[in-house]
Design a protein around this nucleic acid. Structure first.
Lengths: 198, 198
DNA sequence: GATCAAACTTACCGCTTGGTAAGTAGAGAT
DNA sequence: ATCTCTACTTACCAAGCGGTAAGTTTGATC
C-alpha cells in the first residue's frame, strides 16, 4: 500500500504531463488528484524535476521491455520488421499517453539542460537500423538511409496517435473511428511499399 | 514603427511558444525580450490567450498563402501532389518554428477549452484529400483512406522536423546533416511507393 | 513499552504569474 | 491651445508556484 502510492503518483504524473506538459502541471495538482498534499509528493520524489525524470525513466523501461524480439517467428526479415512496427502502433501494446510524453520531450529538450531524457532512444533506433539492414534490398543501405526510413515510419505512427483529439474535433467521432480502423492496414502497405522501393 | 511593435511581439511570442510551449512562457518574458514591459504586450493583445490565438492565426494565414497551388504545372496529379508535399517539408518554405507551435497545439488542445486553434487545419486536410483522390488509382478511395495516407506522410515530415535537436544529440551534428540531406529524396520515394501501393 | 523510520500533514516562505488601475508622453486634428 | 487617441509606463494585487521546516500519526522491531 506504501509503494503503491509512489506508483499511483507516477501514473497520475504521467497522464497529466502527457496532457499539459511539464510547465502546465503543478505538483499540487498531481497530488490532489489522489487526495494527497503536494508535500506527500515531494516526500517521495524530492522535486518536480526528479518526478518528471522518473516518469521518463519508467516509460523508457516499459519501452525496452516491449522491444524484446517476440516477433521473430516471422519468415522474412521484412515481415518481422513490419510486425514489430505495427505492434508499436497498437495502443494496447504501447500507451498513447506515453507517446504524448515522449513527443513533448522531443519538443522540449531543445532548450533544456536535462536532455538525458530521450537519449535512451538511441539504442532503440540503432536496433531498428539493424533490423532494416537485414531486409534483402536494404543490406547495402547506409545507417543514415535506414534511419531516415525508420524515422519516417515512426513519424507516421506517432503523429497519428497524438492527433486523436484534433481529428475527432475536425471530423467527428465516427469518422475518426473509420480512420483508426483503416490505419494498421494502410501502415503495413506503406511500410512494405517503402521497403520495396529501394 | 507602431504596428511594427505588434508584429515583433508576435514574432517573439511564436518563437518562445515554439520552444517552451504555452505554459512555459510568461508574457513578461516575451515583452522583455523586446525591451518592453508586459503591460505593453497586454495593451496590444488583451490577454495571454488572445496573444496565443493570434500567433496561431498568423501561422494559419501564412500556411494558406503557401498552399496556393503553384505546383500545378506538373504533368500528373501524383507529381503535383508529391511536389506539394516535398515543398511542405522544406524549412525555407515553411518555418520549423511554426511546425513546432502546431505540433504543440496538437498535443495541447485535448484539454483546453480554447480548441478553436487547430480546427483551421480542416480546410488544409480536405484540400489534400481531394488532391490524393485525383491520382488515378486513388479515385475510388474513401475520404478516410485518403486522409490516413496523407496523415502518415505529414507525420513522417513533421516528426522529423521537430526531432532535429534530439537526433543531433544522439548521432552528432555531422550524421544529422547526412540524415537531412537524404530526407527529401527518401520522402519522395516513400510517397510515390505509397501512392502506387493501392 | 520505548525506539525508530516511513508516510504523511500543516504552516510558512520568497518569487512569479496573469491581470487591473491609473497614470504619462507625444503626435495629429480642430 | 486644447482635445483626443495611441503607445506605452509604474504601481499594485490576489493567486499560484516549487520548496523548506517542523511536526504528527502509524506500524514494525527490539
Amino acid at each position: 500500500m506504501a509503494q503503491d502510492t509512489r506508483e499511483r503518483l507516477l501514473d497520475q504524473a504521467e497522464s497529466l504531463f502527457a496532457e499539459r506538459g511539464f510547465y502546465g502541471v503543478s505538483i499540487a495538482a498531481i497530488a490532489n488528484e489522489l487526495g494527497l498534499t503536494k508535500q506527500a509528493l515531494l516526500h517521495h520524489f524530492g522535486s518536480k524535476a526528479k518526478l518528471y525524470g522518473e516518469v521518463l525513466k519508467r516509460i523508457s523501461d516499459r519501452f525496452d521491455a516491449d522491444s524484446g524480439h517476440p516477433h521473430d517467428d516471422q519468415h522474412t526479415a521484412a515481415d518481422a520488421l513490419i510486425a514489430y512496427l505495427i505492434n508499436l502502433s497498437d495502443p494496447a501494446a504501447f500507451s498513447p499517453i506515453a507517446t504524448r510524453v515522449l513527443m513533448r520531450e522531443l519538443l522540449d529538450n531543445r532548450g533544456r539542460a536535462d536532455t538525458a531524457g530521450t537519449w535512451y532512444l538511441k539504442g532503440f533506433l540503432q536496433d531498428l537500423i539493424a533490423r532494416v539492414q537485414k531486409v534483402p534490398n536494404w543490406q547495402t543501405a547506409s545507417d543514415a538511409e535506414a534511419l531516415t526510413f525508420i524515422y519516417q515510419i515512426l513519424g507516421a505512427i506517432n503523429y497519428f496517435r497524438i492527433s486523436e483529439p484534433t481529428l475527432t474535433g475536425i471530423f467527428g467521432q465516427d469518422d475518426f473511428g473509420a480512420l483508426e480502423a483503416a490505419f494498421p492496414d494502410q501502415l503495413e502497405r506503406l511500410i512494405r511499399a517503402g521497403l520495396n522501393a529501394r
